[in-house]
Structure formats: structure tokens, C-alpha cells
Amino acid sequence: METEAIFQSLPTLPLFFLMFFITYLIAYFIVFRNWSPKIRPEASSCFISLAHGTPAVFLATRAILADPNHGFAASNTEFQNSVLDYSIAYFLMDLVHYLVFIPSDVLFIGHHLATLFVFVTCRYVVSYGAFAILFLLILAEVTSACQNAWTLANARKGDVEFAAKLYDFLSPPFYTLYSIVRGCAGPYFVYEMLVFYMSGVADNVIPRWVWISWICVVLTAIAVSILWVSNLWIELYRQSTIKLEKKKIR
């Protein structure tokens, strides 16, 4: 209850945005100050992603379990709205990062805009359906810690031996977990959402254009995620084959 009370008593969206902005500056100017200027922005983005991902999983889980009436058509609780603000603030800050440092990355910018659309419509337009959106948030961020550690290791594997070893160590379990979550759990949950919303039960609180747009955004994100991790599996297999051939030659 203390966590909920703190969240509900604060102007959460601007406060959280300021928090992520300061965290980004700390990462850029202090934590990664000795890293190459080419990878410092990406590393700083990973840093705020770490600050968002795992806490978001716990907060979203708490917000869902704390609501006895949770369901696809349930009204948002104040705590759920605060958790949505937490994620909105993160995606806004990371969007600023991409617009400033990597404006050509249309895929990630589009991803962030689409994600913000889902969170903002749930939080500020209809004020219903937070259960579904927060559950999807849990599925999306449960791999965050491993993914960001893997990304940071990937960025330095060329010049730091430990990073290369960490990258090789994390790749198989990360790919496996990511594949299960994005390839199995995610699609199943979206199917349950679709069946419920198509029944028309929620039409009086969540307009059809809203839930249809949610489904389209999530399905697109899942499809891109599956394509991305499939390419990673292919590359891992290719690298493993090359290493095996080198051992045979020796």
C-alpha cells in the first residue's frame, strides 16, 4: 500500500520524465564517460531502459494484483494509471534520445510512437483496459535486464575481452527467453484480448477503434520481434558453425 500511496500522491508523468532525463544524463556524462562517443548514446539509452524495464515488471504486476476487479474491460485504478505514466515517461525520454542522436532509425522511432499511442489512449483517452496493457508491458519488459546487458556487451565485445565472453554467455539464454515470451506467451495473450473485445462486451467503455488499434500495434510489434530474434538465432548458428569448422581444421 505504501508504494501505491506514493505513486498516487505525485504528479507522476512530469516527475518520471525528469527522473529518466536525469538518469540519462548521469549515464552519458558519468557512467559511460570513458566510452567511445559513438556508443555512449546507445549505452545511455540502455541505462534508462534498465531503470525502466525490471521496475516496470514489478510495478505492473503489483498494480494488476492490487485490483480485485481486473479484466480486459475494467476501469483503470489510480495506481495502474501511475504505472502507465512511468512507462510513458520512459518512452518519451528514449524517443528524445533517438530524435537527437539517431533520427534515421525510423523503425525504433515508429515503435516508440506506436507504443506511446497505446499507453496514452489507455491512460488519458478511455481510462479503461489497463489490465491488458500492463500485462503486455510485463511480457515486453521481463527480458529487459538480460537484453540490455546483452546489448551493452555487444557494444564493447570488439575491444573488451570480458564483454565478448559475456555476450557469448548471454546470447543463448536471452534468445530462448525472448523467443518464448514474444513467440508464445505474447501471441496467446493477444488472442485472448481479441476474442474478448470482438465479443462486444467492452464496446461501451473502450471504442472499437481504440482496441483495434491496440491489437494492430501489438501484433506488428510481435511480428517484428519474432523476425529480429529469428535473425539472431540464424547468426548464432552461423557463428557456431564457423567456430566448429575452425576446431576441426586445428
Rank of each mutant, 00 (worst) to 15 (best):
214 W>P: 02
11 P>Y: 05
99 L>G: 08
69 N>S: 09
11 P>D: 09
36 S>N: 08
33 R>K: 07
181 V>C: 11
84 L>F: 02
205 V>M: 02
23 T>R: 05
246 K>H: 13
50 L>D: 06
184 C>K: 11
193 M>E: 07
137 L>N: 07
97 H>P: 03
184 C>W: 10
79 F>H: 00
146 C>N: 10
196 F>Y: 08
161 E>V: 13
76 N>A: 02
224 V>K: 07
4 E>M: 14
76 N>I: 02
66 A>E: 07
185 A>Y: 15
129 G>I: 02
125 V>C: 11
144 S>M: 07
134 L>P: 03
16 F>V: 06
138 I>E: 01
228 W>Y: 12
174 F>K: 14
2 E>Y: 11
4 E>T: 14
58 F>H: 05
115 T>C: 01
51 A>V: 04
143 T>H: 03
113 L>D: 00
146 C>I: 14
43 A>K: 06
68 P>C: 08
106 V>H: 15
76 N>V: 03
161 E>T: 11
203 D>M: 03
196 F>T: 06
152 L>V: 05
71 G>I: 07
203 D>F: 03
175 Y>E: 07
111 H>V: 03
94 D>A: 01
47 F>H: 10
6 I>C: 12
161 E>P: 13
117 F>R: 04
169 F>Y: 14
107 L>Q: 12
223 A>W: 05
9 S>E: 12
178 Y>A: 10
234 I>T: 09
102 I>G: 09
16 F>E: 04
221 A>H: 11
231 N>M: 15
205 V>F: 01
176 T>Y: 09
230 S>D: 09
220 T>Q: 11
173 P>E: 07
230 S>Q: 08
44 S>I: 06
177 L>H: 15
115 T>V: 03
162 F>M: 15
72 F>P: 09
